[in-house]
Design a protein around this nucleic acid. Structure first.
Length: 268
DNA sequence: AGATATTCCTGGAGGC
DNA sequence: TGCCTCCAGGAATATC
């Protein structure tokens, strides 16, 4: 399922096709995406030029020269298909460029979203307004402040986009394992010394996944597979009952209705 | 206010 | 083979 690294890889892939190109046309193929698209979406996008693409948390942002930004979230099954030869089931949105190229947003489970937002309003747009810092901008001290006084377990707190933006279940589990922190530990009880291990662990696991995506994916914009292209490198995620690699055995527990994978021997 | 539960949706896996 | 149930996930919303 797409998390920050997959979105980053997707944005970089789409950049090759869209950046600097004029949008020749778009087609919204479903009226019932997560949120309704504006009725004038077609007029606002058609004829505009894509000036840049970027990522914020797990959102991809496509900026146009008309002051609008197309913002997509891939949910858990979303991906962009590049130059599809034909329309497939769950292709919800199409963009055609002046070069005759086409990208299709395909999302079977429709947990993703698509919005057109004025670029200058993006920072105040509700889904963005509450987001915490980007992982690569996070520091141990900043994280300590955000966790101060919190009694909830660290795992769901890291999953909360207000604490730190962009982490999903997979990379939270992997980062906590690398940092040797038990996912059940109360967020506010974790020492600054341990947070100084956790923040780099988060950054490292994300950077490695981005690098793996960039180097191994033939189709940059289409990470697929339930566990993502980085799955062969997971130490704990999805490995219930198997060795963690450092002498312990991975366990699966449920926190906040979500699976947590960790090693009780290595994570304290 | 903070913690926890529920909702959305579909396809894949596993059971019988 | 086919039908059933369960599960996965992020974010918004509701309830304690």
């Amino acid at each position: 399922m797409p998390e920050l690294p997959e979105v980053e890889t997707t944005v970089r892939g789409l950049e090759h096709i869209l950046k600097g190109r004029r949008i020749a046309g778009v087609e919204a193929r479903r009226p019932d995406l997560r949120r309704a698209l504006p009725v004038d979406l077609g007029q606002r996008l058609t004829g505009s030029t894509v000036v840049g693409l970027r990522r914020r948390a797990k959102y991809g942002v496509i900026d146009t020269d008309r002051g609008d930004s197309l913002v997509f979230h891939l949910g858990m099954s979303g991906h962009w298909r590049i130059d599809p030869t034909e329309i497939e089931k769950h292709d919800h949105f199409l963009i055609d460029t002046d070069e005759g190229r086409r990208v299709a947003l395909n999302d079977a489970r429709r947990f993703g979203s698509l919005d057109l937002v004025p670029t200058e309003e993006l920072a105040d747009w509700p889904p963005f307004a509450a987001l915490g810092p980007e992982p690569f901008a996070m520091t141990a001290e900043e994280l300590r402040l955000r966790l101060a006084g919190r009694s909830a377990p660290i795992k769901p707190l890291l999953l909360d986009q207000r604490t730190i933006a962009g982490l999903g279940n997979i990379y939270v589990c992997e980062a906590l394992f690398r940092a040797g922190i038990n996912p059940k530990r109360a967020g506010g009880s974790i020492s600054i010394e341990r947070l100084k291990r956790l923040v780099p662990a988060i950054q490292d696991v994300l950077a490695e996944a981005i690098a793996a995506g960039g180097s191994t994916l033939r189709d940059f914009a289409a990470p697929n597979g339930e566990l993502g292209y980085f799955s062969k490198s997971f130490a704990v995620y999805g490995r219930d009952g198997r060795p963690c690699g450092s002498g312990g055995t991975v366990r699966r527990i449920v926190q906040g209705g979500r699976s947590t994978f960790y090693c009780p021997h290595c994570q304290r």
